[in-house]
Write a protein that binds this DNA or RNA. Structure first.
Lengths: 242, 242
DNA sequence: TCTTTAATAGTCACCCTGACTATAAACAGG
DNA sequence: CCTGTTTATAGTCAGGGTGACTATTAAAGA
């Protein structure tokens, strides 16, 4: 706060931008909206918006998330939402100086294409991250940073369960890792590792899921109370031959 | 950017705050300045200041760091500086709405008490983190977050060398870990681990340090090109008995 | 000279991990 | 109805990293 009263300070516009991920059909998807006006009219962009006068960035991010996904407030309140970083390059918005606090969120595969509800976005859609090109502003950079962060977080936190419905099989959980990391994991080893981590998942007392797809029916699990993974679940040979 | 032209947006003041750490005499220290005016006049605070009109937060943070520490620009340009997170609670500053982007920096033990140079702070001082109480604004929260981050980063990155002078002994490096983590580490095991990680440190071709302190003279090392630690160097029993 | 301190070398057992094999239980198709 | 495919689950085995520990060397200080 040095110089607080000495420098003339410039007012900035402050926004939040959200990189909302889900796993759908074996591919990592991100929620994008189509811009309805200049600049970048017609281009796809990350959802987001201005902070209201008495809102923190976290509050604004959760509000925007609820508006864009159409999820009920109660559900949104329980979702994993995390500050990524703040983007403040002077020319990131061609009209004026905008500082944006970026967030990352993980949601299970939603039944509807999202954003039919209260959102005032022109159009909203889940897009495979590989196909998200030509994003407005510096949103490609933000998306890249968010993608890296999510991949890294899977290694040493339990938040992969955030991509899963309330009850899931170990196969579904493994497919989250395989989808985000883009690598295949050994089934028995993954199972051993997850079950050996106390508090990561807990078995559902009821029966096993029956005629889901092909193959032997799998047991159902719920997310456990743990948040960190010790020791971590490292992705294979991530450029570093272990 | 949804609603960009729909909501009336409120202008905010944007600042950077810096948690600058160093290891000195077996204790983790943080750089604090004494506030010269209200609010919190006379209280200690993290160094920081407003973004200039065409500055990014990163640029502003590095500029403030140079001003506060009195280090030459060339040195500051090479220091490790990392965004921590953005603090945007509406009432974090009693006068007006201020959004602050917080950064963490690691510096070697500086010869001078710092901030005699170009800084316009009332007074600047290195303070052991344990004795930093009654900080202005939400700076105690920021300091706590920064401290956690630094501790965690030591586990899976090489940035402990950022606390060391250009050439250092393994004992000095180990003392960085012990100081930040507050735990004792086994000497031989630490040595084995560090030397087994390619690119973490590299031996200095010259001779060993001679009459430093007591004990057998130690070999000198430099920071290597690696930035990540695979596998990580986990702190002992960090609540999770491995 | 003897003690203390720190650096360095080396040992050993345990556990985690990756790689792999085997069995069970569903479905698809002929 | 049988067979092949798919997935879940159980289990084995060797190698590597780690924690715990001992031993040796080389300096400073009393």
């Amino acid at each position: 706060m040095k110089g607080y009263d000495r420098y003339a300070y410039e007012p900035f516009a402050v926004t939040v931008d959200l990189a909302v991920f889900t796993v759908r059909g074996g591919a990592l998807h991100v929620l994008l909206i189509r811009r309805g006006q200049e600049p970048y009219e017609g281009a796809w962009a990350l959802p987001g918006g201005f902070l209201l006068p008495r809102e923190s960035a976290e509050t604004a991010a959760r509000r925007e998330l609820a508006e864009e996904t159409g999820l009920p407030e109660a559900v949104v309140a329980g979702l994993h939402l995390e500050q990524l970083r703040t983007y403040s390059e002077p020319d990131r918005d061609p009209r004026m100086r905008v500082v944006s606090v970026a967030f990352t969120a993980l949601v299970p595969d939603l039944p509807e294409p999202a954003a039919g509800g209260g959102g005032d976005a022109d159009q909203a859609r889940w897009v495979p991250v590989g196909e998200a090109a030509g994003l407005a502003f510096d949103h490609a950079l933000i998306l890249g940073d968010a993608r890296s962060r999510v991949g890294a977080k899977l290694e040493y936190t339990c938040l992969a369960t955030g991509f899963c419905p309330p009850e899931f099989t170990l196969g579904e959980l493994r497919s989250v890792y395989e989808t985000v990391w883009g690598t295949a994991l050994d089934r028995p080893n993954f199972r051993r590792k997850v079950l050996a981590t106390p508090g990561f998942v807990e078995a559902v007392p009821g029966a096993a899921r029956l005629t889901g797809g092909r193959g032997k029916p799998a047991a159902l699990y719920r997310a456990g109370p743990a948040t960190a993974l010790h020791p971590p679940l490292l992705r294979p040979t991530e450029g570093h031959p272990k």
